[in-house]
Design a protein around this nucleic acid. Structure first.
Length: 331
DNA sequence: CGGATTTGACCTGCGC
DNA sequence: GCGCAGGTCAAATCCG
């Protein structure tokens, strides 16, 4: 789960995957706090008393266990929701979502069948819907598997953005530099699809497809393929647009070592190049973020908020109920 | 003038 | 093998 804000035109994301493990990708940029005991007490939880190493390890183990359960639930929910959405929307956006999410529906054409195959075999699918400032955003991350069943980390991410219908530029501002290399009118959508390559680094494999929604011309759907292999051009020193890039990794972790608990806040997975080893020397705002994210109160509140949003979404609860019913044996 | 964009041609893979 | 559709290339054009 993540928080996703759009400030003006540039998305600013604080991706906080509470309960998800951090074993997926190494992060070149970290804000690592190694602090004194007094610092630790104030950082890990402003109101909690200093804890011993044993207590910290027990808590860490519990956190890891809960995180793992949370991760499994998240994946299961995403999978079920993706299936349900594809069933409810047999055409248009729903169909496209199904192609990249979990629908085994055989679409016409080579590419589409390829996409749907990738998606149907995916081992990590994340879907999130949100209302963001001027519009809605959605992303679907797909880690396509290799034939041997392991994940090949080719991410396919879909972002829907609401724009001015009179704006024909097909530009989705995400902070990266893109070079347009083609445009094509596709069969199932009268509006043209634009093809972009990342222009910041010549070797960057990321591609982006942008097309207006067939149903709502004020919505553009941007599909990102791959991951940037370079720093974010505009993010150094800023909070990361994590959700827009990686779509679901955890930029913050807590670990305990001989020198005491350490908060690792991965602020820009790809970029910035700043490694702060001592949180006490970090910028005051960054220190606050580290403290806030690490605190159990914050994480609990976040989980509660996510639960509220999910249970408040009638579509989601219907989909979940239907999925559970399908899993029950017929009597 | 150099970089970005446009756009028609071409390539590739799947279904028939 | 052919047609179709999506994706990519590259020359032409545009623009600051």
């Amino acid at each position: 789960m993540c928080c996703f804000w759009t400030m003006g035109t540039a998305p600013v994301c604080l991706d906080l995957m509470v309960g998800r493990p951090m074993d997926h990708e190494p992060s070149p940029v970290r804000c690592t706090g190694v602090r004194t005991e007094a610092d630790v007490a104030s950082s890990a939880c402003d109101r909690a008393p200093p804890m011993t190493n044993d207590e910290a390890k027990i808590l860490e183990a519990k956190l890891a266990q809960v995180s793992e359960e949370n991760r499994k639930l998240t994946e299961m929910i995403a999978y079920l929701y993706g299936n349900q959405v594809s069933r409810q929307s047999p055409d248009g956006e729903g169909q496209q979502r199904a192609r990249t999410a979990a629908s085994p529906t055989p679409p016409a054409g080579k590419k589409r069948s390829q996409e749907s195959m990738d998606a149907s075999h995916s081992c990590d699918v994340e879907i999130s819907n949100r209302n963001v400032g001027t519009g809605e955003a959605e992303h679907v991350d797909v880690d396509s598997p290799l034939s041997n069943g392991t994940c090949r980390r080719i991410k396919v991410k879909k972002v829907c953005t609401r724009i001015d219908p009179s704006d024909t530029s097909l530009v989705v501002k995400d902070g990266y530099q893109w070079r347009k290399y083609g445009q094509k009118v596709t069969r199932d959508n009268p509006s043209p699809r634009a093809y972009f390559r990342c222009a910041f680094a010549p070797s960057c494999p990321v591609k982006k497809k942008v097309q207006r929604s067939a149903e709502d011309s004020s919505v553009v759907e941007a599909t990102y393929e791959g991951e940037h292999n370079h720093p974010h051009p505009t993010r150094a020193g800023e909070l990361p647009s994590y959700a827009a890039r990686s779509g679901g990794s955890v930029p913050c972790s807590i670990s305990t070592n001989s020198s005491g608990p350490t908060i690792t806040l991965d602020l820009t997975k790809n970029g910035g190049g700043v490694q702060v080893l001592d949180a006490g020397e970090a910028q005051p705002d960054m220190k606050k973020v580290c403290r806030a994210v690490a605190s159990p109160e914050f994480q609990r509140a976040l989980v509660e908020q996510m639960a509220r949003e999910l249970t408040g979404d009638q579509k989601f609860t219907d989909a979940l109920a239907a999925a559970i019913l399908r899993k029950l044996p017929d009597y």
